[in-house]
Design a protein around this nucleic acid. Structure first.
Lengths: 335, 335
DNA sequence: GTAATTTCTGAAACCGATTTCAGAAAATGT
DNA sequence: ACATTTTCTGAAATCGGTTTCAGAAATTAC
């Protein structure tokens, strides 16, 4: 509001006729303060429009009251919703988030983590990412760390995830129940645990109804649109017939959609198409995409809660989130 | 790397047999230091793996070396690319960005700005947003401020923009040149200067070839997918024939696309469709969307450069960026 | 009514840097 | 060779808070 600046705790102390210590105490509620002095301090703070200097606070207290949040890419669907979840949860606390973007590069991620550590964040939340596992384990040793949307085998108590296998199983099963037998799966990066789990769910669903998964119908993508398109083109080249495509995420489903469009193959009349994630624009695909929804915002909130628990020294509860089938218009019964 | 923590400038001073002042000097290069001492300090810092405490630095120097970057929504296409531009430019400097998300609410934006100010950011970059203009003018008075992707009339020397009118003119003209006469325009929020400019470009293009813009063919949207869909449905209800739709951004084009799909209207065979922005997934629309590309990353970089100039007290150069027509497959010649 | 607690309070040290100031050392001038 | 500058350097103050410690005031105990 006003052109304050430079109002310090000493000014408040003088104005309220108490010592700096007392002001600090009403500010932090560390020690009880007599009601009248307390009122005086509060009044002085209001009158002078006092804002504590965050740097001084952090320096003195040793806490930065900030949480580093690293995402693999701003603007990545789903991940942005997870970020919003973190944000919303943190707003209920004195902590505030510091964000960084790994830009899909492990080195950039590492650098971002170092920067966070330099900034003395009290905790760290990683959303996806490509950072090598050893580096993450090292980081977890140094500071409270929660990883969401990625499974790191060495850090079972730090990862927050969706039940990928179950989700993939359910959506594959959905296709099977509609009569599909030759179902393609375009996977994510198989070195990533979650991509592997989705593949496993797909295989299991087929096996459970007595279908042997055919290697020609599984193609590895990298979670990005372009790879969904390439994979579909490659598939079409192979010539092995299929009636449905299950992409390990919605982005690749968009790529697949375009490849089919180019070949004049109709969705869902000729081929059914499903994704995974339910990113916001999937509802606007032509046709709207049937997919598995992840409770992304909820996961973000939980990640924030968990890292706060770690900071307090409590061991966090990390539930396995369930996905939900969102039926739209990209699937038809096999005929 | 190691479990350092707690290495301060005093440790370095002791290790290098100099005073704290000298260490600070080699750190900041404020005053020349004799070569031998300098070496000793550098060696000590390397040996002890010293990392300066950012809070102490900021407290003492009065600079936070951070820039607040507020976007209206993480995950908004185009805006995320602008953010990346800011990020990349800032990486070349000692400054680092602090990000916040306004979540489409003016109040949230205001709060975020307050938080930035509390954190003593040295400068502020706003990307789009709904914050009232007076508040922005007030903010600009208090701290170096650059606004990108939004025109605030009271702050001509703080806004970085694309030539919206020219862009809209060019793409409308493109449709006209392909024989279209009855061209719909789904606008953005007309209270926003950029939306108004795009509308103006559209009108001017029509007028320049002697077509009187028909009010029935202009519908106000709000830049979001849903509104593009609603607008198109309303349009269809009106019954006035048209052969092309120009949406004020790609998001609304996605909405329009879905509405047309639902009615069985083919794109581009029956109706041509164009957008504005060239967000990444527009290339994967079915059919791929013809649109105007904004140099988003470049704008982000420029915004960062400009705010740094403001901080230095230099008056920044704020070029008007030009858009570029990206021709894909959503437009056909009118027959 | 005095002793023993309990509750508040302020002075001063501290967090980890930067910066002013004055003096020491070295360089330059004549 | 001696006076003047210029270049480096360290001691100490400072930034704006938190926290320890010891003492004052208010309670409670007996």
């Amino acid at each position: 509001m006003s052109l304050n600046e430079k109002i310090t705790i000493a000014d408040i102390a003088a104005h309220a006729q108490v010592s700096k210590s007392t002001v600090s105490r009403v500010l932090n509620e560390t020690t009880p303060v007599a009601a009248d002095k307390r009122e005086a301090v509060l009044a002085a703070m209001a009158a002078l429009n006092y804002k504590p200097n965050v740097f001084a606070q952090s320096l003195a207290s040793g806490q930065s009251l900030s949480i580093g949040v690293l995402t693999q890419n701003f603007g990545s669907p789903v991940y942005d919703v997870i970020m919003r979840g973190v944000l919303l949860r943190l707003e209920e606390t004195p902590y505030s988030p510091l964000f960084a973007d790994g830009r899909w590069h492990p080195e950039t991620e590492q650098k971002a983590i170092e920067t966070f550590l330099d900034r003395r964040v009290d905790g760290l939340i990683l959303i996806g990412g490509y950072c090598p596992e050893e580096a993450l384990e090292e980081t977890a040793r140094r500071t409270p760390l929660i990883i969401v949307g990625r499974e790191v085998s060495g850090l079972p108590n730090h990862c927050l995830n969706v039940d990928n296998e179950q989700g993939a199983y359910a959506i594959t099963r959905y296709l099977i129940d509609l009569g599909h037998r030759d179902i393609v799966h375009i996977t994510g990066i198989l070195a990533h645990e979650d991509a592997a789990q989705r593949l496993q769910g797909y295989r299991q669903a087929l096996l459970d109804v007595g279908i042997e998964p055919h290697p020609d119908l599984v193609i590895e993508g990298n979670f990005r649109r372009q790879s969904g398109m390439m994979a579909t083109e490659m598939l079409l080249l192979r010539g092995r017939p299929f009636s449905a495509i299950f992409c390990a995420n919605d982005q690749m489903a968009f790529g697949a959609r375009l490849a089919l469009y180019r070949r004049g193959i109709r969705v869902p009349d000729d081929v059914s198409l499903v994704g995974f994630d339910d990113q916001p624009d999937s509802a606007f695909m032509t046709p709207p995409l049937t997919t598995m929804r992840q409770p992304a915002e909820e996961m973000g909130r939980m990640a924030a809660t968990a890292v706060l628990q770690l900071i307090k020294g409590v061991s966090p509860d990390l539930p396995l989130f369930q996905t939900e089938l969102v039926i739209r218009e990209s699937v038809s019964r096999h005929h």
